Simulated scan of single mutants.
Amino acid sequence: MKGWLFHLAVLGVLAVLAVILPAYHANNLARVLVLAVFATGYNLAFGYTGMLSLGHALFFGAGMFGAALPVTLWGWGGLPVLGTGMLAGGVVAAAVGVLALRTKGVSFMIVTLMFAQAGYLTLIYCNAVTGGDQGLVLPGAARQVLGLDLTQDGSRLWLALGIYAAALAGALGLVGSRFGRVMLAMRENEERSRMLGYDPYTVKLKVLVISGLYAGLAGAAYGVFFGYAGAGFATVQYSILPMLYSLLGGAGTALGPLIGAAVMFWLIDFASGLTNAYLMLVGVVLIVVVLFAPRGILGYVRERWLPWLP
């Protein structure tokens, strides 16, 4: 109960920020919330189940183009394309998982990276449909969801908050369930879990599909919210980002991805205003966090003060 109340309080703070923030910061917060959905799905696979993947950019890109292509090809818009994007992410994750989960450890990481790179090259080569390097611009008429005009910063932020709240509730419910305890068992000792009668392949495939659904929803939302879908969002950078968000905020904590995404986003925004070598400053901060809080920011808080955090 404490965990649910704490997370509700955080959502309440975000709702207050949605009311008081000026347009520029409201737009940035919407972007952070969408990326936090992406990282929350990644955290289910990595932080809770122990699958280190470098292929999540493929699921994110599948979700983005799963939303953008119905808009450009058939004139769809609004809520349906968010659903098609989410479904695309889950289907691609299932296809990748069926093959990649025959490996584990470093081999799994490399195989998922190869799939992601193949997906990126496919988007580039199919430029007649996907727009290649230039991508696709979504018309304003297609960016209307539940009566909200997503060309406006305020509407965009409120829908982003609603999607993140649903994603967070889903993650909390999952990790608190019996299946969530099986996920943790897989992370801690896969062989012992097998001896208890759980099939690691099946469990991990289910988690990877759920993680892909999260990534697909985030990719679809990013494309619809900001009116653009490009192959650049399927590069390896977008596989590394959710991993960094999870590690920085606290892998294996429900709110860690949000904290990591927010800290990283505004750290880059602040550092880029100080120096052209802003990535060096960001790297120094990440090294300090790893040295003094190896479990991430929220992991450190849980370890020292709030052991009941999920």
Rank of each mutant, 00 (worst) to 15 (best):
D149L: 12
N127T: 15
R156W: 03
L82G: 03
V98E: 12
V71Q: 02
S177Y: 07
F108G: 04
G135L: 12
S155G: 06
Q152K: 14
A165I: 09
L150I: 01
A160N: 02
G147F: 09
D149G: 14
F115V: 03
F59D: 12
G147E: 08
F179D: 05
G176T: 01
R178S: 00
G170D: 10
L121V: 11
G119V: 10
M114Y: 03
V81S: 15
L73P: 01
G147Y: 01
Y120C: 02
G83K: 10
L87I: 03
M109D: 02
L69E: 03
L161W: 08
V91G: 07
A67D: 05
G119R: 10
T112K: 05
V71N: 06
G75T: 09
A165F: 04
L101A: 03
F108E: 04
L136C: 08
G176P: 02
M114N: 00
G66C: 14
M114K: 03
A142Q: 08
Q144N: 12
G135R: 07
W74Y: 13
F59A: 11
V96N: 00
P139S: 06
A171I: 06
G89H: 08
V71C: 01
G61E: 06
G78T: 09
A62Y: 11
D133G: 10
G176M: 06
G119H: 06
V129H: 05
M183Y: 00
L121D: 12
G61N: 08
G66T: 14
P139G: 01
A166E: 05
L161T: 04
R181C: 07
A169D: 14
L168G: 03
L138E: 01
G105D: 08
L87A: 10
S155T: 00
G61C: 08
A116M: 01
A68Y: 01
F59C: 00
A68Q: 10
V137K: 15
M86C: 12
A118W: 14
A141I: 06
G83P: 00
I124F: 00
A116G: 13
Q144T: 06
A68F: 00
M86K: 04
Q117C: 02
M114T: 04
L69Q: 07
W74M: 13
Y164H: 01
A171L: 10
A100C: 15
M183F: 07
L121P: 03
V81D: 13
V129G: 06
M109R: 09
G170P: 02
G63H: 00
V129A: 10
N127C: 13
A171E: 07
L87P: 08
G78D: 10
N127K: 15
A142C: 04
